[in-house]
Design a protein around this nucleic acid. Sequence first.
DNA 1: CGGCCAACCTGTGCGC
DNA 2: TGCGCACAGGTTGGCC
Length: 278
Amino acid sequence: MPELPEVETVRRGLAPILENTRIAKACAHAPKLRVDIPKDFNQRLSGALVTRLTRRSKYILMECEDGLVAILHLGMSGRITIHTAGSEHPARAKHDHITLLTENGDLVVFNDARRFGLLVFSSVSEIDQHALIKDIGPEPLGNGFNSAHLAAGLAKRKSPIKTSLLDQKLVAGLGNIYVCEALWRVGIAPTRLANTLSAEEIEALVPIIRTILEEAIAAGGSTLKDYAQVSGELGYFQHSFKAYGREGEPCIAKGCQATIERIVQSNRSTFYCPNCQK
DNA sequence: CGGCCAACCTGTGCGC
DNA sequence: TGCGCACAGGTTGGCC
């Protein structure tokens, strides 16, 4: 789930709870996720004033007044749940690894069954040079992501376009689902080698990637409106994908009679329409 | 360096 | 009901 739109949805859900708010008590309950949680996690965040929540690619950055930045990644199975002040705060559940209790009495819980997520510290001044951040490509919704950048990046790649778009150095934030969706919508076969795409195809791909991500963020936003009334769980909203997960089902493109197929590329499933995507 | 694979973990769903 | 296997939205270290 957590590709750029889901991470952005989580960030937007957390922002009103955490920004300009002091953390009363921070607790890390697991020694490590993908990497070690800082030993001084509880000490450094308990009492800290959160000034901003931002996002870079699939990382959520929690900035504190003293310049500390907590870098959070949800991995494959990471979830954030908010239990607002006044609601019952449940006992810690299996795989609840990190909890933040705010001065207002809101409780933020990070749960990650597979522990592919991570939380590490950096600082405002060093964040851009942090090993996890520095090589990431442009944000797909920003000006740095354009057909010139994409064309230059694809020209030197001999791997399939599907695999190339998953490379975070080329463009930030795309994952398996939205790459499949973008290639379906633009009509490009996932197996095409990156350096064989025409200028026109690249030109078409850029706005399609943007649109798909923006639509997904909007869909997440629409579920955010009532998250507090429902479950408090952020980031796992219902989606109707056009290609992803639809193996054996009919392609829904107008006039297309073909069936969505699944192949494996670089050990990841790819879903595509063999008729629409050339 | 580019490209590919295995590995990191646990949970779920399916066929038998 | 239980067992074994395939597979899951991400990233990276190691190997050609």
